[in-house]
């Protein structure tokens, strides 16, 4: 897979755009020139990761001044890198415990799902906000 794709998307900070960003991810997965795995599963997973990460950014970016969410999707050298930028207070990735099925929590599965699907997940502080970086090697 030698193809290089770079998408830079800025959307209003509203949940009604989750479907749009998910569709963009699915379309990208289906258009990959060389990918030997389950293409429909990859499409669903990219949709899911983008949906969870954008919803998370909306939830954590509660400052009235922030009205947009920026997402970059890069495919390069077999690596898919998704970055979601938020302008909020942030959270600590390490303190998020995996959901306990026996407790039946209603919240807290989003980051767990992202960590299960992607190979590497980092959340770090930037000037004026944070970025959630997610990486997956495609075969």
């Amino acid at each position: 897979m030698s193809e290089r794709i770079e998408l830079d998307i800025t959307l209003p900070k509203e949940t009604r755009y989750l479907g749009l960003v998910g569709q963009i991810g699915e379309s990208m997965a289906r258009s990959l020139e060389r990918f030997s795995g389950d293409r429909e599963e990859l499409a669903y997973h990219i949709n899911l990761v983008l949906t969870e990460a954008m919803a998370n950014a909306i939830q954590h970016a509660k400052e009235p001044s922030s009205t947009e969410v920026r997402i970059t999707i890069t495919l390069m050298h077999h690596k898919l890198i998704i970055k979601v930028f938020d302008q909020g207070q942030g959270f600590d990735l390490c303190t998020l415990a995996p959901p306990d099925a026996s407790c039946l929590q209603e919240h807290g599965r989003g980051i767990f799902i992202i960590q299960t699907i992607m190979d590497r997940v980092i959340y770090r502080k930037l000037k004026g906000g944070h970025v959630l970086e997610m990486e997956k090697t495609l075969h």
Binding site: L18, G22, Y44, N47, L48, T51, E52, A55, Q105, E106, H107, G108, R109, G110, F112, I113
Partner: peptide, 9 residues
């Protein structure tokens, strides 16, 4: 398609 919020509901 269902995400973590849908599962939560």
């Amino acid at each position: 398609f269902v995400d973590s919020s849908g599962l939560g509901a």
